[in-house]
Amino acid sequence: MPDFLREKTQLEYDFLNAKECLNMLTEDEKEILVQHKTDLEFKAGETIVKRGAVVNNLLYVTEGLVKLEVVNDHKVSTLGLVQSHSFVGLICCFAFKNFDFTAVALENTKVSFIEIDVFEKFIKSNGEFSMALIKHMSGIANGLFHRMTRLSQKNIDGALSILLLDFAKIYISPNYTLPVGRKELAEILGYSKESVINTLSKFNKEGILNVVDRKIEILNIKKLEQISILG
């Protein structure tokens, strides 16, 4: 695995892996959590939770990949991607009585629905868990701020480079199969399908990528990273 992916993956793991927060629970609390959670499986493309639903549970992804969507001025935008061992929209769940986002499975995904009342009791009674959760939520918020700021300043070349590198970090490999088609890629980035297709074709011709349908092989990570910065 290239050093770029190894370093980035470890950095993100330290801040964004919610499993470390759950490890701060006592054995009794872990047993209570297990008793008050429901595990469900979703196929690729299925909606996990819809915007407007009552927040009765926190959603924890044990396996798979999830896309978060928000609506602003009647326009749907992708807020981010959630991978395994992460909560879905955690920074929003304690602020509102209803989910302010929609979560969709990008691949076959397993999710634990944890009763929010039980979780709140852990926050009040376990200081170490609460502090770990605050640090975790701060890491998520910081990542979202940087992601939204970066993407807003990029052309299609830069934005697509960022997303392709994100997938490389998620799958911990420069070679992977995209979990979405060209249309979904365009929706995530806020560009047209044609722009995404043309940019992938250009990257392929320039030897930066080898693209076959949804299969991506990053041939020149340094060049792709440079485009993600300057594009």
Rank of each mutant, 00 (worst) to 15 (best):
residue 95 A to E: 15
residue 96 F to D: 12
residue 97 K to F: 06
residue 98 N to G: 01
residue 98 N to P: 03
residue 99 F to P: 08
residue 100 D to M: 11
residue 104 V to C: 02
residue 105 A to M: 02
residue 112 S to M: 05
residue 114 I to F: 04
residue 117 D to N: 14
residue 118 V to G: 00
residue 118 V to A: 04
residue 119 F to W: 13
residue 120 E to G: 01
residue 121 K to W: 05
residue 123 I to A: 00
residue 129 F to N: 04
residue 130 S to G: 02
residue 132 A to I: 05
residue 132 A to T: 07
residue 135 K to Q: 13
residue 136 H to S: 03
residue 137 M to F: 03
residue 143 G to K: 04
residue 144 L to I: 15
residue 145 F to W: 11
residue 147 R to V: 02
residue 148 M to W: 15
residue 149 T to N: 15
residue 149 T to A: 14
residue 153 Q to R: 14
residue 155 N to L: 05
residue 158 G to Q: 05
residue 162 I to P: 03
residue 163 L to M: 13
residue 163 L to F: 07
residue 164 L to K: 09
residue 164 L to I: 13
residue 166 D to K: 08
residue 169 K to L: 05
residue 170 I to Y: 15
residue 171 Y to V: 00
residue 171 Y to C: 03
residue 173 S to C: 10
residue 179 P to W: 06
residue 179 P to T: 07
residue 182 R to C: 04
residue 186 A to F: 03
residue 186 A to H: 08
residue 187 E to W: 00
residue 188 I to L: 12
residue 189 L to A: 06
residue 189 L to G: 08
residue 190 G to E: 11
residue 190 G to H: 13
residue 191 Y to V: 05
residue 195 S to P: 03
residue 198 N to Q: 13
residue 201 S to D: 11
residue 201 S to K: 14
residue 202 K to C: 01
residue 202 K to D: 04
residue 205 K to P: 00
residue 208 I to A: 01
residue 214 R to S: 08
residue 214 R to W: 06
residue 219 L to H: 11
residue 221 I to W: 09
